[in-house]
Design a protein around this nucleic acid. Structure first.
Lengths: 250, 250
DNA sequence: ACTTTAAGAAACTGCCTTGTATCTTGACAT
DNA sequence: ATGTCAAGATACAAGGCAGTTTCTTAAAGT
């Protein structure tokens, strides 16, 4: 096994049109990174323009180049996963060369962080106005859902090497751990139902999973142990009000 | 920059006592992996047992060896992050050698998946019984919180290279993206309050974040777009009942 | 026109890692 | 005791990648 491209789900790659086709770059290609054996630099060679749309050499500088690189880096991260987030690959994708990157960022990890920050700064959100809270919220969620969620894209590309195609399963990550503990919550809730503590009519699978869903979310967001007061908020402010028996709303 | 050990938060490393100190392995060390230049194999050299507790060579086989390797692999993943999840490092940690691993798993990624599966199968949960749903739930959460959560440990070690010490921030991952969108939800809710749709008394920061928290959780768990009916469940079954004005519970 | 700055191409060092091959030796069965 | 099989040690080939250096050349300022 030498190279097995991860190739994340296509929907993740959406939201960035392969950087921008840069200014005057001609159609033909001039793709480097794919070793073009000899020095084909434009050393005062007038043949260039008769060879069917010879690439008119242009050269980006400063901020323009920098955002192009950061866009390319993000593309690379999403397209091939963190394992292929290499300086060479990024330089090739940005159609520039390694020293250009090293002049700006000392290490690969610096570039990674800059890439994430750059991407986070983009995409100003749009505010829906449907006239109802429900409609507004669903619209917001739908927008976040439509491919370009950078947070999850980042996570996915990091975890990519685990769940690659042809691997055992994608959802295994969740399932291998959760299957047995799911029954713990179920058991605890069943006992509460017997005691009359909760209204069985309000119990859906999603609500039963709610406490641990919020717990996992908190843990994944902070990567630190969850403080006790947060656990109490989850239970007291969110879960218990939802499942506790009470008179029907007016 | 040559080597910069990630070293995840200590609380993650808990829950596995450095594999097991294997059977008859003597205390002294015999640590390999740290290149011991010469061939110190036990080639009928009677000096072994007078040299202060010379390691009595033992040799694990079959299933025993296999679980030892998988434990070591998990330790390695947690201790040094996925970037250092190398066959060499794992073999060294398991006090065996590379061919032994390659006889069992064809590639490094096979071993990764086997490791995660192995770890997922361990740790049967304990059922608390405090007499109340609230107490039981808090106990369950506290257990999950006490260090040994393999799901988050896995995620952390994967994302490790991003949030290394001396990096810009650990919470930046969440913050860079969320800061601006957080205000979108706030805005949408503010308008709903003005319309009298929601009870402002029920709004806490955590409840305001709830819809997107659940959305992100779903996305991170499935690594797929969230189906519409799930979005509706989040809004209709969980969020709206919590914030909609209603008569106080009986 | 001339100078300065940085982009871009290429080669190179050095390290690390994957994956394999070889050989010795311990564990176990008969 | 003896044979078989796998553990364990080591060496090795091949390739990938980080980071650097050198040099050429385009772009921008004066």
């Amino acid at each position: 096994m030498t190279d097995a491209r991860p190739t994340l789900p296509a929907w993740l790659a959406a939201g960035r049109p392969e950087a921008e086709i840069r200014g005057l770059m001609a159609a033909g290609g001039h793709c480097h990174g794919a070793r073009l054996g000899e020095n084909m630099a434009v050393t005062s060679n007038p043949d260039d323009d008769n060879a069917q749309a010879g690439p008119i050499a242009t050269r980006r500088r400063g901020a323009e180049l920098e955002t192009a690189i950061l866009d390319a880096a993000w593309d690379q991260l999403i397209a091939d996963g963190y394992e292929h987030f290499t300086i060479d690959a990024i330089a090739a994708r940005a159609k520039t060369s390694k020293p250009v990157l090293y002049r700006r960022w000392k290490t690969r990890e610096d570039l990674l962080r800059a890439t994430v920050r750059h991407r986070g700064a983009a995409d100003p959100p749009v505010l829906p106005d449907t006239g109802s809270l429900r409609g507004d919220l669903l619209a917001l969620l739908a927008t976040a859902n439509s491919g370009r969620n950078p947070l999850v894209a980042l996570l996915s590309s990091m975890v990519g090497s685990y769940y690659n195609r042809s691997g055992p399963t994608p959802a295994e990550l969740r399932f291998a751990f959760l299957s047995q503990r799911g029954s713990s919550v179920q058991e605890v809730i069943d006992r509460a139902v017997e005691r009359g503590e909760v209204d069985p009519a309000r119990l859906t699978p999603r609500i039963i999973d709610l406490p641990f869903a919020l717990f996992r979310h908190e843990l994944m967001m902070t990567l630190k142990p969850v403080p006790d007061h947060v656990l109490r908020q989850i239970v007291d402010d969110i879960f218990l009000p939802l499942v506790t028996a009470r008179p029907p709303a007016g």
